[in-house]
Design a protein around this nucleic acid. Sequence first.
DNA 1: GTCTATATGGGGATAGAC
DNA 2: GTCTATCCCCATATAGAC
Lengths: 219, 219
Amino acid sequence: MEDTKTRILDAAERLLSERGFTAISLRAVTAGAGVNLGAVNYHFQSKKALIQAVFARRLEPLNRRRLAALDACEARAAGKPVPLEELLHAFLGPVMKPDGAGAGFVQLMGRMYTEPSLDVRRVFSAEMGKIAQRFISAFRRALPELPPEELFWRLLFTIGAMAQTLGAGLLLHFISGGICDPSDLEGIEKRLIRFAGAGFRASAGDARGKKRAARVRVS
Amino acid sequence: MEDTKTRILDAAERLLSERGFTAISLRAVTAGAGVNLGAVNYHFQSKKALIQAVFARRLEPLNRRRLAALDACEARAAGKPVPLEELLHAFLGPVMKPDGAGAGFVQLMGRMYTEPSLDVRRVFSAEMGKIAQRFISAFRRALPELPPEELFWRLLFTIGAMAQTLGAGLLLHFISGGICDPSDLEGIEKRLIRFAGAGFRASAGDARGKKRAARVRVS
DNA sequence: GTCTATATGGGGATAGAC
DNA sequence: GTCTATCCCCATATAGAC
């Protein structure tokens, strides 16, 4: 039997990924955890602090794995730019392969990107700030001809594609009629890397936008 | 002075795009609208019905515009497949150019894709179901060699990129350090079409995923 | 550390005067 | 149609017994 603190964190994580911050009550959390209502205010100080702890528990190791993967890529590259697809894998892989965290982890990550609560955003921003610069520098080196502004947008597109995928049970159901398997995280990551990789390599374009849209071929 | 019903819808839309379904109270809505608390239960029957009305008010004309744009594309194509970028424009354009709706519209659309509330999802799914098949058929014709499963995933990636962009003030701030302008909707749409267009055209790949990642060139 | 009981406030919904 | 007052429930947080 895990200790009370962990049980609370687990239950909160599950409910949070399903319903979001404001929709869950401490009563629901403690009932799900099989512990007493008072325990949450003993181990954490407030609902806010509990939610921040839930996210922090996953974000810290996640970003450690991301940085470790980036380190490994750069060591392999031996001074040369890291190939684009390896960078994408270093960034996306740790999210898609949670390595022993609960099943709710992936959905939780998806929710974090879209959670409107300021408290959640604060802890999320703090953690992301630690890794953003390293990855952006690496992407710049991999795509030296892409204007920085365009690079940022494409990173945002990629993150959005990832977040949507993690959170999507709904859309997938309607769009695919059920032929897509949202539980195949490895397959999804490969598809996403392929999609985003091609997107990153598209020409940056000009002010006239879509009329000069790239004609792309695959060798 | 607009009528009470409209004022309530407007206030609810603004608050909803900022904070989400469960976080807003009818008291906050009526205070923001400058109307009485009882009015919301007179004009609508419940909070749930109000929120559904908020989304439906925007979704219906949005999807009408999408279908009209698709109709125009297919008329121009005269029986041939509609080019991919035109399809993307027909789908994304009406979201990015709200045509006189309030400023909160774009954020509201972003939130709709990530809202966990079942009530919201229900109205959203109902509206999307009406246009999904038409667009999917058109995409299939534009990309006849792409396996259906892959097409669905790439559509989901594109929708995710769009939703993230619409909702993102947070990530953009951190990632770009402020050089990206989230209010330039037309520019964003062009960038997104370019990115997604290249992603759709990437080779479908095989089971080994990233190791055979496409080498893409632009003509 | 754990549980019960409770303080305090806010929520949605409604009844009924005007 | 609009406003006020109110019912009743549920929320977070805490105090204090064990």
